[in-house]
């Protein structure tokens, strides 16, 4: 196929339910222009400037786009990978995303990328490093970013503050916003025995700039011990929908996103999931209007 060009530029991200852009859906989105309020892309997949980039460049003409990094490694000691950051900033200059976000985790150690969102201890040392790294990223992007709470399969003895306090402090000190992933809150609450609802209630409402929704897996070790894995490979869990309602009531209407990365289904399945999120967003605005 060839990609015709349209003049309309991308705009700010609306406070509606968007969908994560994945390669199996490129052609359908270009050809059918389905009714989706906004799309989120992982910049790492488009840095070559090849065929995937051509799709991205074409799709951004029809949809507001959000750039959601998975490899900037905001928690790495010694600062960010300057070369990678420059490539991201260049991509952002071309695509002009409405929002830019990354995770509160690390992936790079020295010259090696461990292809994961690895957990950080919630210490003053890690906080200072993340704040410095977020500021470095914001200088490169020339705007505030959003930082996402990551899922974690362990906690550290060295941690001196809860995760939501760490996230709020990063936002306060670096001047960024929070991308609240309610699935990750739930996964961590189940894995580490804390109250997911309290996590959301105690997160300052005014820092929440976006919400992520996704499915997760329940894995069992041989001895029956359960651990929840954030694999983005299924429908959003019922308990996570409840937390989403709480988060929207708490933070007000903000952009929300359905993520699905493994066993990627038909686009229509993602649209159905987004419609469910949209109904919750709308119910909240109706209630807010009535009040």
């Amino acid at each position: 196929m060839t990609l015709s060009q349209h003049p309309a530029p991308t705009g700010p991200i609306p406070a509606k339910a968007g969908i994560g852009l994945r390669a199996p859906h490129f052609e359908q989105i270009v050809e059918e222009r389905p009714d989706i309020p906004w799309l989120e892309f992982h910049p790492e997949n488009y840095l070559g400037g090849g065929a995937p980039y051509l799709y991205l460049e074409r799709i951004r003409q029809d949809y507001p786009m959000s750039m959601h990094g998975v490899g900037l490694s905001l928690g790495s000691v010694g600062g960010l990978d300057k070369e990678h950051l420059a490539r991201l900033a260049d991509l952002a200059d071309h695509i002009e995303p409405g929002l830019i976000s990354e995770h509160l985790s690390f992936a790079r150690v020295g010259a090696d990328y461990l292809n994961d969102l690895l957990p950080l201890p919630y210490t003053e040392e890690a906080l200072a490093q993340v704040v410095s790294n977020v500021q470095q990223a914001q200088d490169a992007f020339k705007r505030p970013i959003l930082v996402e709470n990551a899922s974690a399969y362990m906690t550290f003895a060295a941690s001196t503050m809860p995760e939501h306090v760490f996230m709020a402090e990063v936002c306060r000190q670096a001047g960024c916003k929070a991308l609240l992933d309610v699935n990750n809150v739930y996964v961590n609450a189940r894995n580490h025995d804390f109250d997911a609802s309290a996590f959301i209630a105690e997160t300052p409402a005014d820092i929440i700039g976006e919400i992520h929704l996704a499915g997760h897996a329940v894995n069992l070790f041989d001895d029956g011990q359960e651990i929840r894995i954030d694999d983005h490979g299924s429908h959003v869990d019922a308990a996570v929908w409840t937390l989403f309602e709480q988060a929207i009531t708490h933070a007000g209407r903000v952009p929300a996103l359905i993520e699905w990365d493994t066993r990627i289904p038909a686009l229509e399945v993602l649209q159905d999931e987004a419609a469910r999120a949209e109904a919750i967003l709308s119910a909240h605005s109706d209630a807010a209007d009535a009040a």
Partner: peptide
């Protein structure tokens, strides 16, 4: 040979 960039296409 761990990745030296986060772009898996490389």
């Amino acid at each position: 040979h761990p990745p030296s960039t986060p772009g898996l296409f490389e």
